[in-house]
Computed example of a mutant assay.
Amino acid sequence: MNAIIWPEGFVPGFTENFASNEVIVAGLSAAEIWPLLVTPACWPTYYANSANPRFYDDKGPELAEGDRFYFETFGFPVEAQCNECIAPSAGQPGRVAWHGWAGEVGSEERLDVHHAWLVEDLEGQRVRILTQETQKGAPARQLHETRPNPMINGHQDWLDGIVAAARQAKGD
């Protein structure tokens, strides 16, 4: 199966926290999931842990490589920049990823993340949605030590929500 492409400094195992969640579901396609994922304004409609998304520089409504945007999640005001956005196509997964940050550089409150997604069609009219995130900084260390890990649970809610929203849009 396809895998996330990690930028230098954000490889899992070398950061303070790592979360990986995946679903494979029948009856949906990457094309049906993709618009819900790359349109941040949709996120709060199916994922309760996301709020107040907005773009900078008159960009949007869909993410594109290089776009700066903002949203709130896990109690953090997240500034972000999309650094990968490739729509799914025949035989190729959709890929979207962003670097997100909160807090002042060098402060104890600073959090840096790389959040990446793969959306790919599989045999048998199934879709695979993989989301992985690495995090750096003291807040990431605290998240890692919390049980249950809020990132694992939160990202599972995001996956469950996007699947439900896609099914609802399809009329299932």
Rank of each mutant, 00 (worst) to 15 (best):
P35R: 11
Y56F: 15
P40I: 10
F18V: 12
E84R: 15
E120K: 02
G103E: 02
I162A: 07
G154S: 09
G27Q: 00
V119A: 08
R68T: 08
E123T: 06
A138W: 03
A97L: 02
E65W: 08
G13S: 06
R141E: 10
Q142P: 00
P35K: 08
E120V: 01
M1K: 11
G161T: 04
E16S: 02
N153E: 14
P150H: 03
P148C: 07
P12D: 09
V127R: 06
S107L: 07
S107P: 03
F76S: 07
G60F: 02
H99L: 15
A102R: 09
G66Y: 13
S50N: 07
V25M: 03
P53R: 05
L37D: 04
M1Q: 10
Q135S: 13
N2M: 07
T39Y: 01
P148A: 05
A165W: 06
R128N: 04
Y56S: 12
D58T: 07
Q142F: 09
N83A: 07
D121P: 00
M1V: 10
W6H: 09
A165I: 04
K170S: 10
L36G: 04
A51C: 05
P40R: 06
V11T: 15
V119E: 01
A26V: 02
K59M: 10
W117L: 04
V25R: 05
I162T: 07
G13M: 08
T45C: 02
N149F: 07
A165D: 04
I33K: 05
Q142H: 08
T73V: 02
E65T: 15
P53F: 08
N153F: 08
D157F: 09
K59Y: 01
Y70N: 12
H99V: 13
L130V: 13
L36H: 12
V127A: 09
D112V: 11
W98G: 03
E16M: 08
E65V: 13
V119H: 08
D160F: 10
W101N: 07
H115T: 14
E104H: 05
V163D: 01
S20P: 00
I86H: 11
R126G: 00
A30Q: 03
P35Y: 11
E120Y: 01
F10K: 10
P93R: 04
G100M: 09
D160Y: 11
V127W: 03
D67L: 07
S20R: 15
P44W: 07
G124W: 10
A102S: 15
W158V: 05
A41G: 13
S29V: 01
I33S: 04
I162R: 06
I5L: 12
H144K: 14
L143C: 01
G94W: 06
D57H: 13
L122S: 02
N52K: 14
A90P: 00
L28F: 03
V38G: 04
G60N: 04
P44N: 02
E16A: 12
D67K: 05
G13V: 09
P88D: 11
R141P: 00
L122T: 02
E109K: 14
E108D: 14
R110I: 01
N17Q: 15
V119M: 06
D67A: 12
E120D: 06
A30E: 02
N21Q: 15
V127D: 00
Y56P: 01
F14T: 15
R147H: 12
L159W: 08
T146K: 06
F71R: 03
W117I: 05
W43T: 04
R126L: 04
R167E: 11
